[in-house]
């Protein structure tokens, strides 16, 4: 049971003067229970990739397979796939339309055919997961704070009990407390066995919270691996549009001169290594 992308390519407006290659030969695999971050700059194709994961876009070549089902097959499969892969768009609070939080969150499961008690159960489970207590159920979502609105929007996707949760830039516009809450949430999702696919332009955040990272640039995969493997790889390649975290790039320089041994993006670890190097010098 996994989500597999094989040699996926996609071009907007093929054959027209406005033709734009968005994805070229992208392959990767996402397992249940992990956090996979897809990192790329604006226009790298990461949002186009996201829309392929639940069949909003269908591959022009290559394939996307979710739990054995291909996204370009019959409509019935597509329905199953959309239920299975929850997609949280950037600024998801902008999709809110219902009069109460309960109605908003039940939109997904209702569309997938849940009714009555089963529906109610889904709504409260989702609210529980996202840390909204039951008193919110009858609140007007439009009157909530920005952070709360975002949680309602994410809960509305979680209510469909997806096995894969794809989030596009979920921390955008949140303050630090909001970012912390959200990253904790992603971690707890993955611990519950959900595969979390986190799409971001923030490499630093990705290095801190992911199990694996996929770096995409101009529609192609430039690096794929665990955070420490990625740190290693990025010292050798230059990815267009990708800004390295300050600490990481300083650690590259120091490693090159032989002052430290391990690459890191953690300031404490880097400081320790510098201290150790100083001790050795003396």
């Amino acid at each position: 049971m996994s989500l597999t992308v094989k040699k996926l390519s996609f071009t907007y407006n093929p054959g027209l003067p406005t033709e734009a290659k968005a994805l070229q030969n992208v392959s990767f695999n996402a397992e249940k229970g992990e956090i996979l971050s897809i990192v790329g700059h604006t226009g790298s194709g990461k949002s186009t990739l996201a829309m392929h994961l639940n069949g909003l876009l269908v591959p022009q070549s290559g394939e996307v397979i979710v739990d054995g089902l291909k996204t370009d097959s019959e409509p019935n499969n597509l329905k199953k796939i959309r239920q299975c892969v929850g997609l949280v768009f950037q600024y998801p609070e902008q999709q809110i339309f219902a009069e109460t939080v309960r109605d908003e969150i039940s939109f997904g499961p209702y569309n997938w055919g849940k009714r009555g008690e089963a529906l109610e159960e889904r709504v409260f489970e989702a609210m529980d997961l996202i840390g909204l207590d039951n008193s919110f159920a009858s609140a007007n979502p439009f009157l909530l704070s920005g952070g709360e609105k975002r949680r309602v929007a994410i809960a509305s996707v979680l209510a469909s009990e997806p096995g894969y949760l794809v989030l596009d830039e979920p921390t955008a516009g949140l303050d630090f407390t909001g970012v912390c809450e959200l990253t904790l949430l992603l971690r707890s999702m993955s611990e519950k066995g959900i595969c979390v696919i986190h799409i971001t332009h923030d490499l630093e955040l990705a290095l801190n919270i992911s199990d694996r990272i996929l770096i995409i640039s101009e529609g192609t995969v430039t690096a794929y691996g665990t955070p420490s493997e990625i740190s290693e790889m990025l010292s050798n390649i230059n990815v267009k549009g990708l800004i390295l975290p300050d600490i990481l790039s300083l650690s590259y320089e120091l490693k090159k001169t032989g002052s430290i041994e391990n690459l890191t993006s953690d300031p404490y670890r880097l400081a320790e290594q510098i201290k150790a190097a100083k001790m050795r010098c003396r």
Partner: peptide
Amino acid sequence: GFAKPPVAVLKEE
């Protein structure tokens, strides 16, 4: 409610 920038952490250490 703020994240200390890694650079500031490094400097301090």
